[in-house]
C-alpha cells in the first residue's frame, strides 16, 4: 500500500516535472540557437521572428505526437485490419463488410442500436428538461437535483449491477428479491425474467442509461434555463401567453442550441453503449448492440481481428458526423468559431 502511494507520488512528480522541464528546456534551447539579446538590431528582430515561428510547434509538439500515436495510428490500423482475415494477415477486400451486412446478429445489433438512439437521447433530454424546470420552482429543488445527478458518478458496470438486482428473477416457489418483480407480485401479476424477454429487454437496459444520463441533461439544461432573460418571460406574460405557451414558444427556442448539444452528446454515448449490455445480458436474447458485438468478435473465441475491426469502423463512421455537428454547435453556443 505504502509502496503504491509512493510510486503514485513519484509518477506525479516525474510526470509534471518532466513536462515543466521539457517546456522550459525547449524554450531555453530556442533562445540559445536564435539569441535575441546581445545581438545587433536587425539580427535580433530576425531571431525573434524565427523563435515565434518555431515555439508553437515546440510546445504543442508532444501533444501532437501522442495524439497521432494513440488516435490516428489506431484508426488507420483498424481500417487496415478490417480488410484482412481473422488473423489480420490475408487481404480479403470487402469480404468482412459483406459478411457484416448479411449477418443476423449484426443486423439485430444495428436494429437495437437504432432503438437505443431513438429512445435514450430523447428520454434523457426530455426528462432532464422537465426536471430542470420543475426543480427551479420548489424549495427542495437543489436536493432533488443532487439525487438525480448522483447516478452520473456511478460507473456503467456499477449501475448495471444495481439494476440487475432490480430486475432479478428467482424461480417458482422462491421469494422474489428483485424490486420490479416484488412490485409486480404485489400488484397481483406473475414474476418475469425481465432481461430475457426479447425486444422488451432492450428497454429495460435503456432505463439504466437513462437513469444515469438524465442528471447530465438536467444540469446543462438547468444552467441554460437560468440564462434566459427573465424580462422576455415577463414580456410574454404581458402578451398574454399561458405557462405552456411560455415554455414552448419563449423558453425552449431560446435554449434550442443547448438542447441540441445535450441530445447529440448523449447520442454519441449511446452509439458506443457497451458496458451495460455486457454486464446485463452480454447480447443474449436479442439485446446485442454494435460495441458489444465488436468486443465479442475481437476478443472471444480466439478472436477475429478482421470482423472486429470492421464493426469498429462502422461504429466510427456512424459517430463521426454527429461528433462534427456537436462540436460545431458547442462552439457556436460558446460564441467562438
Amino acid at each position: 500500500m505504502a509502496a503504491q502511494i509512493l510510486s503514485a507520488i513519484i509518477t506525479i512528480i516525474v510526470g509534471v516535472g518532466g513536462a515543466v522541464a521539457y517546456f522550459w528546456g525547449a524554450n531555453r534551447l530556442l533562445d540559445l540557437i536564435f539569441p535575441s539579446r546581445g545581438v545587433a538590431g536587425t539580427a535580433a528582430i530576425d531571431n525573434l521572428r524565427r523563435q515565434g515561428l518555431i515555439r508553437p510547434w515546440l510546445f504543442i509538439g508532444p501533444a501532437l505526437i501522442i495524439l497521432t500515436v494513440y488516435l490516428i495510428y489506431p484508426v488507420v490500423q483498424t481500417l487496415w485490419l478490417s480488410f484482412h482475415g481473422r488473423n489480420g494477415e490475408d487481404f480479403v477486400g470487402f469480404a468482412n463488410y459483406t459478411w457484416a451486412f448479411g449477418d443476423r446478429e449484426f443486423r439485430n445489433s444495428i436494429f437495437n442500436n437504432l432503438l437505443w438512439l431513438a429512445v435514450v437521447p430523447a428520454a434523457c433530454t426530455f426528462l432532464g428538461l422537465v426536471i430542470a424546470v420543475l426543480t427551479d420552482k420548489i424549495w427542495w429543488g437543489t436536493i432533488a437535483k443532487s439525487l438525480i445527478f448522483l447516478p452520473l458518478a456511478i460507473s456503467f458496470v456499477g449501475a448495471s449491477v444495481i439494476w440487475k438486482f432490480i430486475y432479478e428473477y428467482k424461480g417458482d416457489g422462491q421469494t422474489q428479491i428483485g424490486l420490479l418483480n416484488a412490485i409486480v407480485q404485489f400488484l397481483g401479476g406473475s414474476p418475469q425474467v425481465w432481461i430475457s424477454l426479447p425486444f422488451w429487454n432492450n428497454f429495460f437496459l435503456m432505463v439504466i442509461l437513462i437513469w444515469i444520463q438524465t442528471g447530465f441533461a438536467m444540469v446543462i439544461l438547468s444552467a441554460a434555463l437560468r440564462g434566459i432573460p427573465e424580462e422576455t418571460i415577463e414580456a410574454a406574460v404581458i402578451d398574454g401567453a399561458n405557462p405552456f405557451q411560455i415554455f414552448w414558444k419563449i423558453m425552449i427556442p431560446q435554449i434550442w442550441g443547448t438542447i441540441a448539444v445535450v441530445w447529440t452528446t448523449i447520442t454519441i454515448l449511446v452509439l458506443k453503449v457497451f458496458d451495460i449490455v455486457l454486464t446485463m445480458t452480454n447480447g443474449q436474447w436479442n439485446s446485442q448492440v454494435l460495441a458489444n458485438l465488436m468486443f465479442d468478435w475481437m476478443f472471444r473465441g480466439g478472436g477475429d481481428f478482421g470482423r472486429g475491426a470492421t464493426i469498429a469502423i462502422i461504429i466510427m463512421l456512424a459517430v463521426l458526423p454527429i461528433m462534427v455537428w456537436n462540436i460545431r454547435q458547442a462552439n457556436r453556443e460558446s460564441g467562438d468559431h
Binding site: 432573460p229 424580462e231 422576455t232 414580456a235 404581458i238 402578451d239 427556442p253 431560446q254
Partner: peptide, 25 residues
C-alpha cells in the same frame, strides 16, 4: 403594455413576429 429596460425582445423571433406574438396568442 410595457417597454422593458433591456428591451426584452424574443431573441429567436423576427421583428415582425416579436410585434405579432401577443396578437397571435
Amino acid at each position: 403594455a410595457m417597454v422593458f429596460q433591456s428591451y426584452a425582445l424574443y431573441p429567436h423571433m423576427t421583428v415582425y413576429d416579436n410585434m405579432a406574438f401577443g396578437m397571435k396568442i
